[in-house]
Structure formats: structure tokens, C-alpha cells
Design a protein around this nucleic acid. Structure first.
Length: 112
DNA sequence: GGATTGACCGGAA
DNA sequence: GTTCCGGCCAATC
């Protein structure tokens, strides 16, 4: 939240919306690039990835993973520690997207 | 104005 | 289970 997308241009608005959704992902849960694009009904997987590559550092980027639950090598190291800290469902070091997948309209996340 | 790059996805072999 | 291919979109050169 806290991003006034309405005051920005179309492309910056898309960027702001992406960051907004990522920031809304609760701990222990993840969303895929494709899911974010589908939820926003804008851009696409590559569009979300392009935004995250530049502005992702401003949000909880480790809660956004690929459709297969992996991330680029240099991010996997830091991401794995965040996943462990937040009790994110993982399988052999990668996120179990089937279990950890979250959606903005979903009520409550993990309850261990 | 066009071409290239990058934290992508789904289906087919 | 892995590997390859076409399509997709925003930011940058």
C-alpha cells in the first residue's frame, strides 16, 4: 500500500501496483510472477520480472518466485534463509509453490 | 523510431 | 523427471 499509483503514468502505475501486491504478500507465503500479472490483469510475467529486477529491492522480493518455485542462483542463497525464517513451505531448498501459493483475496495464511 | 535485455510461463518432445 | 520452443511485456541502449 501507500503507493499513489493514480498520480503516476501508465507504466509507473503498473510498477507501483506490482510493488503494492508484493508488499501485501504475508510471511510464509509466496506468489509467482505470472500470478501477479494475472491478478493485475496487466503486463505479463516478463513485465512483472522486469519491474522486480529494478524496484524489487524495495519490497519483500523473496516472496515472489518463479512458477517452479525457484529463483536466480545469486538470489536463492538469501531467499532460502528468508523462507526458513518465515516458515515458508519448501521442498529440497526450493519453495513448494503448490502449498505456499497465495492470492490477495485469500483470508489467512499458514497457521502452525 | 527500432533492437536488445531480463528476477517469465506453458506446452510439447 | 528434464530439455526445447514460441509468446509475452517493461526498461534500457
Amino acid at each position: 500500500m501507500a503507493i499513489d499509483a493514480s498520480a503516476l503514468g501508465p507504466r509507473e502505475e503498473f510498477t507501483a501496483m506490482v510493488l503494492d501486491v508484493v508488499d501485501a504478500i504475508p510471511p510464509g507465503r509466496v506468489m509467482t510472477y505470472g500470478d501477479i500479472a494475472e491478478y493485475l490483469q496487466r503486463g505479463g510475467p516478463r513485465g512483472v520480472g522486469g519491474v522486480m529486477a529494478r524496484e524489487g529491492a524495495a519490497v519483500t522480493w523473496w516472496r515472489v518466485v518463479r512458477a517452479n518455485g525457484t529463483l536466480p542462483p545469486h538470489l536463492m542463497v538469501d531467499a532460502q534463509q528468508h523462507w526458513i525464517t518465515e516458515n515458508t513451505p519448501t521442498r529440497r531448498g526450493i519453495v513448494a509453490v503448490t502449498q505456499a501459493r497465495w492470492w490477495p483475496t485469500d483470508p489467512a495464511p499458514t497457521t502452525p
